[in-house]
């Protein structure tokens, strides 16, 4: 990636200060979001989100497994992000690993809550089949196909869309199992359980450039940032997770201010996303 010249840097910073960004958006406007669901039929659920040039694919695969002994009534979810070298040559080989790990961890923190499983955005108790013995393991895999800034938001949105597209097959437990043995499960071919995704939070990243914050920064804008905060907010307006990146220090009042701005933005984003996802699902059903 070619670096930016001084003139370009000034242009970007100045534009943001004046509430006109390089592509004409206002500070708190998102790029047009394009949602497609069901792109990978082999997975239980999948979605592809395009925010401008940023292109991510997210899939959900469900497998049967054993719940953790500490939480016998909950299922398990694991999130994994992979940066494809198609997105940027520097992601080739092991180059993208750092970024991938960072994104995975951030996503996990935002969506899954703490170690005890409390406060997770996804309701894990709906994943259990036989308490203590069998539960669903969800593997959420994301792939960054093309990167043009604001990866975390896009990934969060993609996961939300993929989960709403996910169908988990209905399981019937065979009667007569006793004691410690593994009970037999009969998996139905036809029926599926749809996930309830209304509670899943979205992630909003606010990038501070100069004295103002913008949402949905492109790569160039991100290169100018001093610091950024990613906040995951759910429909009720509760904050599910918070990450601060960037070296510059932030005054606490600014942080609070950013949070309230994020909350405000998130409402619109959630509505937009939901309608887009519904449209995509409907379109998918018809085809």
């Amino acid at each position: 990636m070619v670096g930016l010249s001084l003139g370009e840097k000034h242009f970007i910073q100045g534009g943001i200060a004046q509430d006109i960004r390089s592509d004409g958006r206002k500070r708190l406007t998102y790029r047009p979001i394009n949602v497609e669901t069901g792109v990978i039929p082999q997975a239980n659920g999948s979605a592809r989100i395009r925010m401008g040039a940023t292109d991510v694919i997210s899939t959900v695969k469900a497998e049967l497994g054993k719940p953790i002994s500490l939480q016998p009534d909950k299922g398990k979810v694991s999130i994994y992000v992979d940066c494809s070298p198609t997105a940027a040559p520097m992601f080739e080989g092991r180059g993208g690993e750092e970024l991938s790990t960072e994104l995975s961890v951030a996503l996990q923190r935002s969506l899954l809550g703490g170690k005890s499983g409390a406060g997770a955005g996804i309701d894990l108790s709906s994943l259990v089949v036989v308490e203590g013995k069998i539960c669903w393991d969800l593997y959420i895999d994301c792939l960054v196909v093309c990167s043009d800034g604001n990866l975390l938001d896009a990934l969060g949105a993609a996961i939300k869309a993929a989960l709403s597209n996910t169908g988990i097959p209905r399981v019937q437990v065979a009667a007569g199992a006793s004691g410690d043995e593994q009970p037999e499960v009969d998996i139905s071919d036809e029926e599926f359980l749809q996930f309830d995704t209304s509670d899943i939070p979205v992630i909003v990243t606010l990038t501070k450039v100069g004295r103002h914050y913008i949402v949905d920064a492109t790569t160039e804008e991100e290169s100018q940032m001093s610091s950024a905060i990613s906040i995951s907010v759910n429909r009720k307006g509760h904050i599910c997770g918070l990450t601060k990146r960037g070296g510059a220090g932030l005054d606490p009042s600014i942080v609070l201010d950013m949070i309230s701005v994020a909350k405000h933005v998130s409402e619109q984003l959630i509505n937009k996303l939901d309608s887009e996802i519904a449209a995509a699902e409907a379109g998918d059903d018809e085809s």
Binding site: Q42, A43, S46, T59, Y80, S84, E92, Y139, D141, L143
Partner: peptide, 18 residues
């Protein structure tokens, strides 16, 4: 470089590259 996505095959692959 050739890489396969985690979800590309029926069973989930653990190591997509290398």
């Amino acid at each position: 470089e050739y890489s396969m996505a985690n979800f590309s095959t029926g069973d989930r692959m653990r190591k997509p590259k290398g």
